[in-house]
Design a binder for these strands. Structure first.
Length: 263
DNA sequence: AGGACGCCCTGTTCGC
DNA sequence: TGCGAACAGGGCGTCC
């Protein structure tokens, strides 16, 4: 679902479709998604203004509003964006709809209503107030090592901890660990030098290639786990059978042969 | 501190 | 075939 590569794709999509067009109307279809905002206050902040630029940190998208602050979007597990060139092509049941003066519009869709719509005066302040860690794409091997210092518990939980590093969720933590050949329950404290090197390289490589594929598993390399991420499927590397585990309340899919459990 | 668990929510898949 | 149960998972709160 929407993890770093997905949100980066939404960012590029918004950049390509929705900037520099004054907003004529704002409709919020799911009040529960608003944080410290009312539809009225959001409408006031957006009305007559254009979206100017975007930034991403982890799974959060920040959209700069002309003469104002930043619209903050989080996509939960089902959120996405859809631009429409004309009003009648806009979804009617969007969780948030921005209609531009030229008749086009941008819809924020989150059918499971687990996302978030907020407002920030400054993205860096917002990131800090949420306690988010460094963006996962910005981390190099040294940064990863520094974050791991003193960390107890398993490596998959760590990768998914947004307070430690921001952007990685269940699916991409599986992919990164698969590419690195590390078992999801491996203790962070027990990672050796070679594993850190491999983990850092896999992390960067997986995220970059996923962004290149626009977060579409079907467009990802054959060596990736994601296109066929299910227990019982063939491992893309060794051909053995993939297995699954429950880790931190999520389903981890891995290859017992390529990602052996440390003894 | 970190993990197990439940909850939010709804579209999809599963099992009888 | 049909219908209810289970599942999916990001984030958060609670308990241990």
């Amino acid at each position: 679902m929407p993890e770093l590569p997905d949100v980066e794709s939404y960012k590029r999509y918004l950049d390509a479709t929705s900037l520099h067009q004054p907003i004529e109307a704002v409709h919020v279809g799911a009040l529960r998604l608003l944080r410290d905002l009312t539809p009225q206050s959001l409408g006031r902040r957006l009305h007559g203004k254009a979206l100017e630029s975007t930034r991403r940190h982890g799974k959060y998208l920040f959209v700069r509003v002309e003469d104002g602050g930043w619209l903050v979007l989080h996509f939960g597990m089902s959120g996405r964006l859809r631009y429409a060139g004309s009003a009648d092509a806009l979804p009617r049941d969007g969780e948030m709809l921005l209609r531009f003066e030229n008749g086009a519009g941008l819809a924020y869709l989150a059918p499971r209503k687990l996302g978030r719509i907020a407002w920030a005066d400054d993205p860096a302040d917002y990131v800090a107030s949420q306690g988010l860690g460094a963006d996962a794409l910005e981390l190099d091997e040294a940064g990863l090592r520094a974050l791991a210092k003193g960390r107890r518990g398993g490596v998959k939980s760590w990768l998914m901890d947004q307070d430690s590093l921001a952007g990685i969720g269940n699916l991409y933590s599986d992919e990164i660990l698969f590419q690195a050949g590390i078992h999801p329950r491996q203790a962070v404290a027990a990672l050796d030098d070679a594993q850190f090197r491999t983990l850092a390289r896999s992390l960067g490589q997986v995220l970059r290639e996923a962004i290149e594929a626009q977060a579409d598993p079907g467009a990802m390399p054959r060596s990736f786990l994601l296109p066929r991420r299910e227990a019982g499927a063939d491992c893309p590397r060794c051909g053995g059978r993939l297995d699954e585990l429950r880790v931190a309340g999520r389903t981890a899919v891995f290859c017992p042969n390529c990602q052996p459990e440390a003894s």
